[in-house]
């Protein structure tokens, strides 16, 4: 299945392909379908994204009783330069799904457009069925896996959080198409720094977390990341998705250590890191 099958090209000069003739041309039987060394191949010599340029850092999400909380900071770095400091890295898809994205910003923007097209399709068909969070997650996984197989990956890790008929869905897809579901997920540097914190809080609450607990936990994790991850910032957004739909917060400035007061001298790491 091609993912852009409905694309129409309108040349500035020349004729639009009204009769869809291009699609009817048979592929040449005598050339191999894919070969790395074949210079007749149209993709050969094409520039591909092999390094990300402008990147977002971690995404963190955890299930609580009745929904999911997801948090990201709003920084997009150009290499190690903190280049764009107010970029939303979360996006609502349909009514009950939100995605959070790490990695290349332009690939995220392209993915956003693709997903908007999908929800517009549902809107147009108007048969009462909409893509579920799991379907969106699976679509992204296939999209990423297919792109990377063409040697042209979308350089992102995507966390998909949603709610379907009162049930929470939380899943992750990375740039090679690996995908899984879990009760809490952290990407990027957060997979090293935040995941243990998430795991501990989750295990300490066998009956599940409350929404307030979860929001606090996510903010704590982002604060730790701000201290430890040099590609992060303290300007964050926290979204909540439950059976009522998606709410993405306005930008929040994390309350962090005040460098002017000399506070660190009298506080332990635990106190500073977890804001206690």
């Amino acid at each position: 299945m091609s993912f852009n099958q409905d694309y129409i090209s309108h040349p500035v000069f020349g004729q639009v392909d009204y009769f869809n003739k291009k699609n009817h041309q048979q592929p040449n039987q005598h050339t191999p379908y894919y070969s790395v060394h074949n210079h007749h191949q149209t993709d050969a010599g094409k520039q591909k994204t092999l390094d990300p340029i402008v990147t977002g850092s971690s995404v963190i999400a955890i299930k609580y009783n009745g929904g999911i909380v997801m948090g990201t900071d709003m920084l997009c770095s150009y290499g190690s330069l903190a280049r764009f400091n107010s970029v939303q890295r979360q996006k609502q898809v349909g009514t009950h799904t939100v995605i959070g994205v790490s990695g290349e910003l332009s690939d995220f923007q392209s993915l956003s457009n693709t997903l908007d097209d999908l929800t517009t399709d549902d809107f147009c068909i108007d048969d009462g069925s909409k893509l579920s969070s799991q379907e969106i997650w699976n679509y992204i996984a296939r999209l990423f896996y297919n792109s990377r197989n063409k040697g042209n990956p979308l350089w992102n890790t995507v966390v998909v959080a949603g709610n379907q008929n009162g049930k929470s869905f939380l899943g992750k897809v990375d740039l090679v198409g690996t995908c899984y579901q879990d009760d809490f997920i952290a990407t990027g540097y957060g997979a090293h720094i935040a995941l243990p914190l998430l795991r501990k809080e989750y295990d300490d609450n066998p009956n599940g977390l409350s929404q307030d607990q979860a929001v606090k936990l996510i903010q704590d994790c982002l604060r730790v990341l701000f201290y430890r991850d040099a590609r992060s910032s303290k300007r964050i957004q926290v979204s909540v998705v439950d059976s009522n739909g998606v709410k993405i917060s306005d930008p929040i400035e994390l309350d962090t250590y005040n460098w002017h007061s000399g506070e660190a001298a009298v506080r332990t790491f635990q106190q500073v890191a977890l804001g206690k």
């Binding site: 299945m1 068909i125 048969d127 069925s129 893509l131 799991q134 379907e135 679509y139 296939r142």
Partner: peptide
Amino acid sequence: ANYKYVYESDIRVER
């Protein structure tokens, strides 16, 4: 089958 591959769910009959 394609739909199932992409979305891992059943295609709506009308579609």
